[in-house]
Design a protein around this nucleic acid. Structure first.
Lengths: 128, 128
DNA sequence: TCCGTAGATGAAAATTTTTTTCGGTTAGAG
DNA sequence: CTCTAACCGAAAAAAATTTTCATCTACGGA
């Protein structure tokens, strides 16, 4: 993701671009769907409270996506649209881009769809 | 859902059927996707700790499904397969049965799918 | 470039949520 | 009817998240 556009989004919402926010973004760029603790390790220079607040801000701005994959909350950069494959055996999480969703087949009217999330649970190749 | 089959599942996993567990089941039957607090109100005779443990047991047994729809955890009876429509404006949650998923189109091999969850976010009719 | 200020930061404390401990109780198999 | 593994609730502990508050800083405007 272009840092430039992220900075634009942050400023666009009236927030400031601070070293702490950049550090969190850098930490998030290292790996998708990290837990708070994992992120924290990657940017130990940022205080815990600030980390919570920063993730809130980045989520609000649309740069970060908050996930709930069964174990606690996880966070990832919202660069591309993708879904998750979660192995119930080893806990491994992987992504896939193909969206096997046929929204046309969804028999719902009167609802303006803005986003969706799909998680698939099962057993990964290694665990079978 | 047939109470009988639920009791069977609980016993089948080596758990006992207690008045508290039945009370929680009754509370869950009143409405889908309730928060812990909502459930608690509906079965105030069950201690908080027991409520946590009961939800764990019922989830393990497969009678209850734990949801993460953005705000804290929610629970519902796992009677039928369905997905959720979440209104980002008023927070209302509704269900739909039609599963617009074409798993065949999912380009993933080497993964044994056992379940999936799909949530659709947007604005409901009333909020538009 | 310098200033003023709205927004940001971190440490500590407060809250909220969830889990553990433990002594007493009970469902249900035999 | 008995026995015991499984349960229960209250209190305490631990973990997660939010609030408070005094101080600091990003950055728009002079």
């Amino acid at each position: 993701m272009k840092l430039e556009s992220v900075v634009g989004k942050i400023r666009g919402c009236g927030y400031k671009v601070t070293p702490q926010r950049l550090a969190v973004l850098r930490a998030l760029a290292a790996e998708q769907h990290q837990s708070l603790e994992e992120i924290r390790v990657r940017c130990s220079e940022v205080g815990l409270v600030t980390l919570y607040r920063t993730l809130d801000v980045l989520s609000e701005v649309g740069v970060v996506r908050r996930l709930d994959l069964g174990d606690g909350p996880r966070y990832e950069l919202a660069e591309d649209h993708h879904h998750h494959l979660i192995c119930e055996s080893c806990g491994d999480i992987s992504e896939f881009e193909e969206c096997p969703l046929d929204l046309g087949r969804l028999g719902v009217t009167d609802f303006e769809v803005s986003a969706h999330s799909l998680e698939i649970y099962g057993r990964c190749a290694g665990c079978r």
